[in-house]
């Protein structure tokens, strides 16, 4: 378990200085736009993959601390991973935010969201970018 202060530092760092927030116009990237119906979060995630490996993963758009930080952390985590490894991480994340058993070892900084399940109205913020990433993997593997 991370302590609260450490979690706060991780979240604010990824919100204020996201590593992976940029607009992509490179046609080789696939993109998925995901906008929340009930709030303002409006993100587009871009993925470049080759031979079943995620080469690059970035996002653009408008989001709150939770949607921005969760998407940025996941981009960090999944870059360089195979689709299979990525799916394992994503499934564990989904389990974590729905209060099901999960493997914290694979989630690294994403463990900062281990109490998000307690905030029913914010779970959608913590999954908006994640769902876009899942959709991108589905598109690549279809």
């Amino acid at each position: 378990m991370m302590d609260r202060e450490y979690k706060r530092i991780i979240l604010l760092d990824h919100y204020n200085n996201p590593n992976n927030k940029k607009l992509i116009e490179d046609k080789r990237y696939k993109s998925v736009h995901n906008a929340s119906e009930s709030c303002i979060d409006d993100l587009t995630v871009y993925m470049l993959a080759e031979d079943g490996i995620i080469k690059d993963l970035v996002f653009s758009g408008i989001g709150c601390t939770i949607s921005t930080a969760s998407t940025d952390i996941m981009c960090d985590l999944l870059k360089g991973k195979s689709f299979e490894e990525a799916r394992t991480i994503l499934n564990n994340y989904e389990n974590m935010v729905s209060e099901k058993p999960f493997d914290e070892d694979v989630l690294e900084e994403a463990n900062a969201f281990d109490t998000l399940y307690q905030q029913a109205n914010r779970i959608k913020c913590g999954t908006i970018g994640i769902h876009a990433i899942e959709e991108l993997i589905d598109e690549y593997t279809e």
Binding site: R4, K7, R8, L11, L12, T65, I66, A112, T115, L116, Q118, Q119, R122
Partner: peptide
């Protein structure tokens, strides 16, 4: 503060 806002979900 933003810290308090973030704390509210941690």
């Amino acid at each position: 503060t933003i810290e308090k806002c973030v704390d509210s979900i941690l």
